[in-house]
């Protein structure tokens, strides 16, 4: 318990969210957890600052009915703070931790894959040759729909590509 309390005290909450770059659901969950922690700590401080002993002699001298005081004193002595079995909660937390670590690793794998893909794309862009050096066959190999479109136009007996004349003009005198 003491170790846990010192660890909680050592935690720099503002640093966590900024240094880890947490966002969205994780950040709000962390905020809620911090609030719970603060509330619990405040409660403990408040309760431990209150007096914890009862002056039964004072009551015995002021009250006529000392039997009541005796009874209450007996109850007071017999009182034992209820102990909670936190094992189950700790188990649940551990299960949650395992789940969280698993999902984090999954996300990491996905992000890594995406990064690799992006790097590949970037390399592709950087090593791409200028359009002047490309041949029609290379462009058509990269985009098979050029060939299919050509086939479609030719099979319909159209020998003009729509939009070509407007862009490049032609050598027709007529």
């Amino acid at each position: 318990m003491a170790a846990g309390r010192s660890a909680a005290l050592k935690l720099d909450w503002t640093k966590i969210s900024t240094s880890l770059g947490l966002k969205g659901q994780t950040a709000t969950a962390l905020q809620a957890f911090k609030k719970r922690n603060d509330d619990a700590r405040r409660k403990v401080n408040l309760l431990s600052s209150q007096p914890q002993s009862v002056d039964f002699q004072h009551y015995r001298s002021t009250l006529n009915n000392t039997a009541v005081v005796d009874e209450i004193q007996g109850h007071f002595k017999a009182f034992k703070p209820a102990t909670y079995d936190v094992g189950r909660q700790i188990k649940a937390i551990e299960a949650f931790e395992v789940q969280a670590v698993k999902s984090a690793e999954e996300t990491k794998g996905r992000v890594d894959g995406e990064l690799r893909e992006l790097e590949k794309t970037l390399e592709n862009i950087e090593t791409a040759r200028p359009f002047e050096d490309l041949t029609v066959d290379e462009v058509a190999a990269a985009r098979p729909d050029i060939d299919s479109r050509t086939e479609q136009l030719v099979s319909k007996g159209r020998w003009h590509v729509p939009g070509y004349k407007e862009k490049f003009g032609d050598l027709s005198v007529l």
Binding site: V136, V139, R149, E151, W159, V161, G163, Y164
Partner: peptide
């Protein structure tokens, strides 16, 4: 002629 159509198509594409 299909070769020309293909060339024009490629030009329009790029």
């Amino acid at each position: 002629l299909p070769r020309f159509v293909r060339l024009f198509n490629t030009r329009v594409f790029i």
